[in-house]
Design a protein around this nucleic acid. Structure first.
Length: 361
DNA sequence: AATCTTGGCAACCGCTCCCCG
DNA sequence: ACGGGGAGCGGTTGCCAAGAT
């Protein structure tokens, strides 16, 4: 009982990792990658089970971890996402670059829960606790697991990232039926349908959708559909960009899966850009799902790059200034990398891309 | 100073999912 | 279709340091 098949074979260490063990694991993975986790301990010379190695790497040794205390923005985002996703920590972590599910789970259980209770909010239902005590508590105890999946699910505020996640969930059924090709177009149409009004000068709260909110304001949807579908990965379908038009959200989105598909797809590799891609300062773990995505061609990618450049160039600091350390890094990297297209690939931005987006926001 | 309590965090455990033969 | 193995996820436990008594 307990333990895993890989643990039966030999006496394996448990408990805290020593610096020597960490060193061995880091050295092995940085040289050879992890491959099959069950074979890692043997190859790395560790008396641990593969599962333990995986956990240690993911939660502690991975180079792209942010570490340090959570910012207020991160905490707020976790609360919002929890209201939508419930205890699905890995899903929540996917929206917080550099943070692990374990870290977020620990933060929730040790800190956020308490704060919410102090504010009179039930951490399970995300609703105010009824006066008089007892009643609310009883309800909360009933089902913490997947609390958000219940009919009590709270609709997150418009214009927040959590709203996007909710949007994602509500479209899940439709997405499931979509496999490829025309399916993507259908999905994109659905996606855009909710955002096209952004450019019409309305004060819709999702006006800040990025880049689609902006794109819809400038690009005819047919033109947008072409590069968006081909450049961004299929995971775009399940991970729309953030609604908040602030630095943190943009940063998160840049570092998120939806952008990863673009960075790692065909054209980037064909340029031999190790660590390069659209945004060379972003480092992401490989995702086989994203690797499958092919670009329609360099022309499309360049168009998209040029569009982003045009969109951000007017005031990138505005976009990157808010919140997270990552957002700050984005800006400094932006400064260092401009222009981020190699000279020979610079193209003249079409007239359509050169509008002042900020007037539209 | 000694003991107890609390909070934060790392790691383990058991389960489910997914892939492959 | 089915079973086995690996990976991933969420819940839980245990350790340790800091603060309280």
């Amino acid at each position: 009982m307990g333990g895993h098949s890989c643990c039966y074979k030999q006496k394996l260490r448990k408990g805290l990792w020593s610096p020597e063990e960490d060193e061995k694991l880091i050295e092995h993975i940085s040289k050879y990658g992890h491959g099959c986790w069950s074979s890692v301990p043997k190859l790395a010379g560790l008396q641990r089970c593969g599962k333990s190695c995986r956990l240690r790497w993911i939660n502690y040794l991975r180079p792209d971890l942010k570490r340090g205390t959570f910012s207020q923005q991160e905490e707020d985002l976790i609360v919002q996402l929890h209201a939508v996703l419930g205890n699905r920590w890995s899903k929540i972590a996917a929206h917080l670059p550099g943070r692990t599910d374990n870290e977020i789970k620990n933060l929730w259980n040790s800190c956020i829960k308490k704060k919410l209770k102090q504010r009179g909010i039930d951490p399970h239902t995300h609703k105010p606790v009824a006066d008089g005590g007892g009643g609310g508590g009883g309800a909360a105890v009933s089902s913490e697991k997947n609390s958000a999946a219940s009919s009590d699910m709270q609709v997150p505020p418009a214009g927040t990232k959590a709203e996007v996640v909710l949007h994602e969930l509500t479209q899940a059924a439709a997405e499931e039926s979509i496999t490829s090709g025309t399916g993507k177009e259908v999905l994109l149409d659905q996606f855009l349908a909710g955002h096209e009004t952004a450019g019409s000068g309305g004060c819709r709260s999702s006006l800040g959708y990025f880049p689609f909110g902006l794109a819809a304001a400038v690009w005819p949807s047919q033109e947008l559909a072409m590069p968006a579908v081909s450049i961004f990965s299929t995971s775009m379908a399940s991970a729309p960009p953030p609604t908040c038009f602030d630095g943190a959200a943009v940063g998160n989105w840049f570092e998120g899966d939806c952008f990863a598909g673009g960075r790692r797809s065909g054209a980037e590799e064909s340029r031999g850009g190790g660590g390069g891609g659209m945004f060379p300062w972003l480092e992401l773990p490989p995702s086989s799902k994203d690797m499958e995505v092919q670009l329609g061609g360099d022309g499309e990618e360049l168009k998209w790059l040029e569009y982003l450049h045009g969109a951000l160039a007017p005031a990138p600091q505005t976009l990157f200034s808010a919140g997270t350390q990552f957002a700050g890094n984005c800006f400094s990297n932006w400064q260092q990398n401009q222009p981020f297209l190699p000279q020979q690939q610079q193209i003249q931005a079409p007239e359509i891309y050169s509008k002042d987006f900020h007037h539209q926001i």
